[in-house]
């Protein structure tokens, strides 16, 4: 295996190993909260914060945590930060916290976070783990931004609550409901596959 550089660890999460498009991790919040851009962005920021803080703690403690109870320890660390985020949102952004509902506490079982702790932070230095967490966080953020942009524009005719479609546009109700989420993400994966396929044929 070639030696990983810091730049690689940072950038792999954004495109090459994008958590949503390639690894298919953390699908539940991805599909559930992306009916509007503001909810999608809030969810992405909350998840990235928990991911970065947990990576920091876990990678600092990686030599102390016994491997037999590592999963339980990871979950306790993650759950603590999620409680923190939840209280913060309730105190300062009550509307968003209400709109996201049970999906804020469900960050605890987001496989993206636990997966990165198990696969990366528990084996690498603090610096590398932070870079990895930032990269994955940005990749997650971008995917959610694209998905929620498509759904909000087609489902409400707005973007960030600002009307972007002409008055004649008839909103597609289906886009803000469950089927729209599945269909949009399916098409996004297909588009990603086309880009990737072109690149690998070119080499």
């Amino acid at each position: 295996m070639k030696k990983a550089t810091p730049a690689y660890e940072f950038s792999k999460g954004i495109w090459k190993e994008n958590p949503i498009l390639v690894q298919l991790l953390g699908m539940c919040p991805t599909l559930a909260v992306t009916s509007t851009v503001i909810n999608g962005v809030a969810m992405a920021l909350a998840t990235s914060f928990v991911l970065i803080m947990s990576s920091l703690i876990i990678s600092s403690l990686r030599k102390i945590i016994p491997s037999s109870v590592r999963i339980a320890s990871f979950i306790v660390v993650i759950a603590t930060f999620v409680t923190l985020v939840d209280s913060f949102l309730k105190a300062y952004f009550y509307d968003i916290s209400k709109a996201l509902g049970p999906f804020i506490p469900l960050i605890i079982v987001n496989c993206l976070i636990l997966g990165r702790q198990e696969a990366f932070a528990s084996k690498n230095t603090v610096k590398m783990s932070l870079l990895d967490a930032f990269g994955m966080g940005i990749g997650f953020f971008l995917s959610l931004l694209v998905l929620s942009t498509v759904r909000e524009i087609l489902g409400f005719g707005t973007w960030f609550g600002i009307q972007v479609m002409p008055d004649l546009f008839n909103p597609w109700m289906v886009m803000i409901m469950a089927p729209g989420a599945f269909l949009t993400l399916g098409i996004m994966l297909g588009a990603y596959g086309i880009f990737k396929g072109k690149k690998s044929r070119g080499v």
């Binding site: 298919l24 729209g180 599945f182 269909l183 993400l185 399916g186 098409i187 994966l189 297909g190």
Partner: peptide
């Protein structure tokens, strides 16, 4: 995954 998501939709 792509087709699976479309079918789920």
């Amino acid at each position: 995954a792509g087709i699976t998501l479309i079918v789920s939709g």
